[in-house]
C-alpha cells in the first residue's frame, strides 16, 4: 500500500533481502489467485514484528487482507483465523527474531495441529529493527551490541528444529533467487498442512551475509549455500535430517511428508461428522436443567 499511502513511513535499507521476498510473495499470490479464480481478498497475510513484518504494508498491486500484531505471535493469530475460517488462505511472514526466539514456543503446537498455513521466515541472523542484536541464528562468537565479547550461545539450526517439531513441509531458499522463491511459496501454499519456506534474507546494514552465502572464489570463500542434490529423497524424514545436519545452508525442498496430510480443521470436521454432532440449542440445553417438581 506504500505507493498509494504517503503516511506510511517505514523503509527497508537499500539491498535488503526482504525486497526479493516481497516480490516473490506478490508473484506467488498472483499465480495462486489466477489458478483458482479466487479473489486476492481471500488471502490474509499475518505479519510479525521486525523488519520482515513490514512486508505486509509494502505489498504492491491487488491488496490481500493483513494483520500486523504483536511480537512473536503470528502463529496463534493464524490459528485463530484458520480455525474459524478454513476457507481463507493464510500466509505468515516473520523473521528469525520474531519466529525463532520470542515466537518459537508456537511452532510445535501448530505443527502438531497441522495448521494449514504457510510461513515465510526471513532469516537475516540478526535483530535489524532494534539495530543489531544477536538472534538465535547469529553465529557463535559474533560480536553484536548485546554480545560484546562474542555471542555465547551456539547458532540455532532452524531446519533441524522444524523437522523435530513435526513440520510437514520444509523448503529453504535465498531472497536473491526470486523466481525459485516464488515457486517454493506457491507450492507451500498448495500443500494441505503446515508449511515453512525458510529464506536467507541478508541484512545489508548489520549482518551482510551475501558474500558468505554465495561464496567468493577470488577471496577463496566457499559458498555457505549449496543446492540440494537431485538424489535427495524429500519424502524421507531421516534423509532430510541428515541433509540439514550441517552448518551450511541447503537450498531447495528439504522435506515433504509423504502420504495424506490432513490439516487440523479437516480432521476436526471429519471427527464432528463421525460423532454426528449438531448444534444443541440453548433452549434444549436449558430444558435439560428444568426442575420438574
Amino acid at each position: 500500500m506504500s505507493k498509494r499511502n504517503p503516511l506510511y513511513d517505514f523503509k527497508w535499507c537499500p539491498g535488503c533481502g526482504d525486497f526479493g521476498v516481497k516480490v516473490a510473495i506478490e508473484q506467488a499470490l498472483a499465480q495462486r489467485t489466477a489458478e483458482r479464480g479466487d479473489s486476492i481478498e481471500k488471502t490474509v497475510i499475518v505479519a510479525g514484528i521486525g523488519c520482515s513484518g513490514n512486508l505486509v504494508h509494502l505489498q504492491e498491486g491487488p491488496q490481500p487482507f493483513g494483520i500486523h500484531g504483536i511480537h512473536g505471535r503470528t502463529l496463534p493469530v493464524a490459528y485463530g483465523i484458520k480455525s474459524g475460517r478454513p476457507d481463507l488462505n493464510v500466509l505468515v511472514v516473520s523473521g528469525d527474531g520474531d519466529f525463532l526466539s520470542i515466537g518459537a514456543e508456537h511452532i510445535g503446537p501448530q505443527a502438531r495441529r497441522n495448521l494449514d498455513v504457510t510461513v515465510v521466515v526471513m532469516d537475516n541472523g540478526i535483530y535489524g529493527l532494534t539495530k543489531g542484536q544477536a538472534s538465535p541464528t547469529t553465529n557463535v562468537d559474533v560480536v553484536t551490541s548485546t554480545t560484546r565479547y562474542g555471542k555465547l550461545d551456539e547458532k540455532m539450526n532452524p531446519y533441524l528444529f522444524f523437522l523435530g517439531a513435526g513440520v510437514g513441509y520444509l523448503n529453504s531458499q535465498m531472497s536473491s533467487r526470486v523466481k525459485d522463491l516464488a515457486a517454493a511459496i506457491k507450492a507451500a501454499m498448495d500443500y494441505p498442512g503446515f508449511s515453512i519456506v525458510h529464506v536467507q534474507s541478508p541484512c545489508t546494514t548489520y549482518n551482510d551475509t551475501y558474500a558468505l552465502l554465495k561464496g567468493d572464489e577470488k577471496q577463496g570463500i566457499e559458498p555457505l549455500a549449496f543446492p540440494i542434490p537431485d538424489s535427495h529423497d524429500a519424502g524421507d524424514l531421516i534423509a532430510a535430517v541428515n541433509l540439514v545436519r550441517t552448518n551450511r545452508i541447503p537450498i531447495g525442498q528439504i522435506y515433504r511428508r509423504e502420504g495424506e496430510s490432513v490439516p487440523g480443521h479437516e480432521r476436526l470436521a471429519r471427527a464432528k461428522v463421525n460423532a454426528g454432532v449438531g448444534q444443541a440449542s440453548v433452549e434444549e440445553l436449558l430444558t435439560g436443567m428444568l426442575i420438574t417438581a
Binding site: L75, P76, A78, G80
Partner: peptide, 17 residues
C-alpha cells in the same frame, strides 16, 4: 490452546476473521 498467550492471540485472529 498451548498457553494463554496463544489463546488471546488466536482469539484476535478469529475475531479479525
Amino acid at each position: 490452546a498451548s498457553s494463554e498467550i496463544e489463546a488471546i492471540a488466536s482469539l484476535v485472529g478469529a475475531g479479525y476473521s
